[in-house]
Design a protein around this nucleic acid. Structure first.
Lengths: 145, 145
DNA sequence: CAAATTTCAGTTCCACTGAGATGG
DNA sequence: CCCATCTCAGTGAAACTGAAATTT
């Protein structure tokens, strides 16, 4: 019960709980924040591109963007240059909302990482980044999918 | 998008995918493994105790233990000393199954942590352990629950 | 009475699948 | 023809809630 995967899922669950509580208090969910963050970072994007950046399934992107549009946080238009895709743009209201949610998320980082000092936080982030970077990379011969 | 909680959830998701795939191939799920591991580690336990050790909700413990009993991997009896509770015991078949699943889990650790050397794995485990240990501990004034 | 345990029924979020329609 | 995108409908694991029944 001390396996890294166990510890990882426990810590991730802690983070998820903190985030879910904070998001719920703000009347939203993780997918909303992640999509707003993607739009803020990459600008107008197709739904497929959003899904790749935010790592959300195509199917969930459709539904969540729909909710964001209903709430006035994003706009959805057909791309005139490639009529297969939509162009999703964040609205001023969406940007305001994103900034507010982002502060919440920053606060959660600090709550979660309180037991670690600055140097330790850096080491943890670095190690995790390596694992993320290696996901599905050539190092591993037995590919998924 | 480089927040520790994001990296954490990404890595945890990688681990979850690896484990879920491996468990599915073995015809089981995470809850089954976690409960078998708890029974192996702590011996006969009440369902409430299992839930506390494996960090599984009381409600899910009931259902999952039921499945394990159906599969012949555990037995459920009323505790004669405290008739509110059940005593759950792992069967020989359950122990065999647990050992097999545990090997799978050990293999997944190695797949996941392949990008890190031994020292780095130790550091990561240590940092994560600190975060887990601090969960809901006094350091944080605003307690959950 | 209060507290703990078991159980059931239901919810939510997240990740994912399959298939159809449209368009490049 | 093949491929990408969008969309809908549905599945399943995991975490959780509320309430009832039993027993301590």
């Amino acid at each position: 019960m001390e396996m890294p995967t166990w510890l990882l899922s426990e810590v991730s669950l802690q983070a998820h709980r903190l985030l879910a509580d904070a998001f719920a208090a703000a009347g939203t969910r993780g997918y909303h924040y992640r999509i707003l963050a993607t739009l803020e970072e990459f600008g107008p994007s197709s739904q497929a591109a959003i899904g790749r950046h935010a790592r959300i399934d195509r199917s969930d992107v459709v539904a969540t963007v729909g909710e964001l549009v209903s709430g006035g946080y994003a706009r959805r238009r057909r791309d005139p240059h490639d009529r297969r895709q939509n162009v999703i743009m964040i609205t001023p209201a969406g940007l305001t909302r994103y900034r507010r949610l982002d502060q919440i998320v920053v606060g959660v980082q600090d709550t979660l990482l309180r037991p670690l000092n600055g140097r330790q936080r850096g080491v943890l982030t670095d190690l995790l980044r390596r694992l993320v970077a290696a996901d599905g990379s050539p190092a591993d011969a037995s590919g998924r999918e």
